[in-house]
Design a binder for these strands. Structure first.
Lengths: 143, 143
DNA sequence: TCCTTATCTTGACTGATTCCAGAAAATGCA
DNA sequence: TGCATTTTCTGGAATCAGTCAAGATAAGGA
């Protein structure tokens, strides 16, 4: 498990200033995979009660731009964040409750990265979202 | 090209009441592929100036639920609508200007439809978004 | 034509995210 | 270590897509 000083190092490595809010946000994203901004704000305030929501938004933006966290935003849901970066894995999203699980594509390393016709676009990423129902939501009424 | 009576038939076929706003919305979606709600409101009002934005939102929801139009919502952009339905084709999205083009996946008919590990989810759709830059945005400053 | 029910109009409202200006803190250098 | 510079944070207002709600209107079937 990563420590606070690990996170500080990562921030420095990305040429970002090391601030308390940023370290706490990085910790929160690691501790709560696929959490939305509100959850992260809550987690951060568990440690730094006075952090403004704006600081969390700023930090998430900075961390995302630096590639230290990854933003996910399935259609119809608010933005989520995860700490697993650099491998372009994909996600399974529950239509009912919005829960997210990681998934690796069945087809090789860079799945579907080439569209049959790219329409002249310069493509740098293929994002795949699997839509369905999570185990809990696909089960009948019972627990 | 589809006529107004074609659209009326499609609405009836989907067990939806045929109303002026719905016909106009269906026309607008066909005439403006990948348009956002605001654009559609504008197009609809070109024909029916008094239509409320709520009626357009209601219609788009009804048409989407009925499968007559498809909603697209790339991360960070507002919802768009298109009339090409039933083939689960994919999209190329420009990071800079948000423009969208259709794309068929290189890998067979149901690309990447099976994740290597579905985590117990019941998956019914694999959505693929190719991110990059459109020809206009990837070109240097010149025209 | 009349009745029932769905849809539309109007206008307020929500909730995620952003913008702004002044205060505070982090880094670099003496 | 102490100061200057620059970035970041705080606090609060603002934006914007989309939704909610109640009464008026129109669609479809008897």
């Amino acid at each position: 498990m990563a420590t606070a000083s690990d996170f500080r190092q990562r921030l420095r490595g990305a040429a970002l200033r090391v601030t308390r809010p940023r370290v706490a946000v990085l910790e929160a994203v690691h501790a709560h995979p696929h959490a939305d901004t509100d959850t992260i704000i809550g987690a951060v305030r568990g440690e730094l009660p006075k952090v403004s929501h704006q600081a969390v938004y700023n930090s998430l933006r900075a961390l995302t731009d630096a590639g230290l966290v990854r933003r996910i935003q399935p259609a119809g849901f608010v933005a989520r964040y995860e700490s697993r970066v650099g491998d372009n894995h994909h996600h399974v999203v529950c239509r009912a409750c919005g829960s997210i699980a990681d998934a690796d594509c069945a087809v090789g390393e860079a799945p579907c990265l080439t569209a049959s016709d790219d329409r002249g676009f310069t493509i740098d990423e293929a994002e795949v979202v699997y839509w369905g129902l999570c185990p809990a939501c696909s089960a009948p009424e019972s627990a």
